[in-house]
Design a protein around this nucleic acid. Sequence first.
DNA 1: CTAAGCAAGGTTTTT
DNA 2: CCTTGCTTAG
Length: 778
Amino acid sequence: MQRPSPIGPRGDSIPEHLLEGLNPQQREAVLHRGPALLIVAGAGSGKTKVLTHRIAGLLATREAWPSQILAITFTNKAAAEMRERVGSLVGEESRGMWIRTFHSACVRILRREAEEFGFQQSFTIYDSGDVRALIKRLIKQRGADIQGLTPGGVSSRISMAKNELHDVDSWARTANLENPLDAAFLELWRDYDNELRRANAFDFDDLISQTVFLFRAFPHVAAQYRKRFRHVLVDEYQDTNAAQYALIRELTQPVTRADLPDLRADLPGASLTVVGDSDQSIYAFRGADIRNITDFERDFAGARAILLEQNYRSTQNILSAANAVIGNNFDRREKRLWTDSGDGAKIVGYTGHSGYDEAQFVADEIVELTSGGMAYSDIAVFYRTNAQTRALEEVLIRTAIPYRVIGGTKFYERAEIKDAMAYLITVANPADPLSLRRIMNVPKRGIGPATEAALQAFADEHQITLRDAMRRVDEIALGPKVAAAIKDLAALLDEWSARPEADPGELLRDILSRSGYTDQLRRSTDPQDAARLENVEELVAVTREYRRQNPAGTLIDFLTETALVAAADELDDSGGQVSLMTLHTAKGLEFDAVFITGVEEDLLPHRISANEPGGQAEERRLFYVGITRARQRLHISLAMTRAQFGEVNPAVPSRFLEEIPSELIDWRTPPSTMRPSPQRAVAGRWRDEPREQFVTGFRDPKPLPKAPLKQFANTITEVRDNSGLELAPGDRIRHKDFGEGRVQGVTGAGAKRIAEVLFDAAGRKRLLIKIAPIEKLD
DNA sequence: CTAAGCAAGGTTTTT
DNA sequence: CCTTGCTTAG
């Protein structure tokens, strides 16, 4: 079936280069026109290509102006990639389009319309840490902790409810308030929302739900956006939750003259294109509802569905494993990925004695792959939980393999960065007490908890903000020294707040020096403070870089952007480093070689998921996502013992392993036949060594010259230093764990000298001489 | 008000 | 294991 190209209002049809090289289904997905289109895109089936070519086609035929297109993704990285690829297809024209994440699109709308519904434009966004801190305080205030309410529990419950588009009152109507726990929760939620309102702040979930509420409450506002966006495209649709679904619904409603009087005639709803794969739905815990995609055709009248099954990413062996695994999920639309690019290498399996042994396998294989010409940046290591990075990092450092941890403990979570950010937030949003409290006594000004409580009490009494209370400190009975300190700080903050348009970098520099923050760090004798100083400097560099790329960017713009950065956004493929990340973060990415580690019961599937309805199926999808990230080589590994909470426990091979046909896997050491041997189990002792002997603190052993967001200093200095040790080929050495061996060669220079050693028992290893636990024998 | 020292508790995944 | 909170001494 060869569909003719749609013809635009001026007679333009789609240029051939946009259709070239597309398979029939992809072609159909680009050409189809109608109210609603579902593209079921299996992993690696070219969905981004289809989406971008579809957008380019709409522009080329002049069916749409750029400004009439709204493309929504989940991560900034996906948005950036789409923007770039559309740009390379249509050039300058792509500029007027909205290609944004759900959250950033909503922030933009909310800022524009803030005044309309009683918020200030300068609102800030609370991250999950802020939310927890706030709820914790509220729980304490109400004495609700005795009822067993925890900050984590309350915040996730509020989050879930908001994702279901509930507000306090609608939730109250459905709840059973006889239940004291529910009643207490309700009061906490009410407090929490009031606090947010007073702080002129939103949490993540508000960004979506408040936008929906805004549209519902003000039809003329909604109508403006409906009229503007004639084509709405949504990526990763299987991950949408109820609120996001409602947002899409709102945006694609028809526009009537009742709502927009200056309209000449009523307009039909925007055309909607969604792309997704229910087999890759892994965010149920965040409220994602798989029914949004499975029911799409029933939901949207006149919807058409197109299935993309041909895979352009992986070898057939990898796809066969993926198909076999996901086939164990019942209740799914049958879909079989295939490729015409050949079987490729077998999957490599390995069972280690410990997590360290497993990590050593990963390191050894990486050395093997890279010596075969593969770049570090084409290799990724996945794991289920962030805790698993420890062993991997230690071994990678020892082996001198450059790596980067994506997500996990982030730059913005470090104390000194949070301090600096709190200053910026306080300056941008004077109503926010949370950040103000954080910096009030940092650096030390003698404003302790008692003083803070007095200020807060005064603020509550007069119904003013904490910041206002500081200004009126004269009216509070406090010691002269403390009062002066408060007045000074208030004056400084006000001076900065008066310059909302200033260059964020200049502002930050000014803040750091005049607040005394830098001085405090500089004067300190704590060696970690030197590193903290570097990190703060790094933040200044980040703001500079931000300003360079957004010359008109204000402080509030900068804060918005940093609040919405996701783990996958940090990825920088130019790095020449192996990427370490959770299976969740891996979605949407691809690598030549992939390692999936910790494929054990209670880890994958994770223990907690066992009790949740649909939990096992979701864990299986997670495994499936991991498998399908690999282009050429897939490695699956597990350990017989796993160190958790400081103690070592036996581990059982994952049930998912049996779902992979055995002929697809080449087990170096199969799960069942392994016996603990004293020789190898030695590797487990590594964890007994004090961590300070290695680089502990932060993770990047080899910072890049560029990429300011990503490099920062380690806070703990290395203790071991072998840099004086001279090794030459032929030398005999003894290694703490590997025993004796002979040096084969030495490469690199200075702190990065690497010895290649053939150990008598443990085989060939690479060691970073400077930190390796070795001694030279004569 | 600050610093240090000790006990207890918590650990899935994240926009 | 690591972080956090609480207690105690200055």
